[in-house]
Design a protein around this nucleic acid. Sequence first.
DNA 1: AAGTAGATGTTCT
DNA 2: GAACATCTACTTA
Length: 190
Amino acid sequence: MHRHALTARDFAADAPQVARTLIGATLLVDGVGGIIVETEAYDRADAASHTHRGPTPRNAAMFGPPGHAYVYRSYGIHWCLNLVCREAGHGAGVLIRALQPTHGLDTMRRRRGLQDERLLCAGPGRVGQALGITLAHYGLAVDAPPFELRAAPHGLADQVVCGPRIGISRALELPWRFGLAGSRYLSRRF
DNA sequence: AAGTAGATGTTCT
DNA sequence: GAACATCTACTTA
């Protein structure tokens, strides 16, 4: 019994709902990746979002169709991956913050220059490096190569926890960080 | 274990 | 100039 591929319609909901749904899903880029164990939701109405002040050259993909990738450079150094949700033009998305590595461990170790499995994808910048994310992925649909995204197994909802987002200074009160309870692959404990 | 400095592209003041 | 959806290396304990 194999899990179905997520498509654009799975991204039509609000960012927090999509962020929750993505926990337990399997994300691969060119066959390399793992199980999503940590996400964060962002929405235009949310002061911490890159889209809060409207479209710019950098965030254009966030105002494009749902189910596509928004890639941004964090702190001038790291590449981070978001999946656009809601509807085109809205500016909502989900940041992929951590994976449990399952596919292409050797490739990820080489790209990261590390052996420790727990540190390969434990943070958005680390995910970007381990999966080889670059601007070449900007705006691409996640239901087609090089992406592959398979739904989480059923019955995982009661193992999803949430809390405040990390590394922001605005909208601190929103519990829009989601994670797989007890996972050893989180960027930080909840 | 906890704290700090330094890396630096894009956006904002 | 300053802030920023971060990470690493290095210090101090």
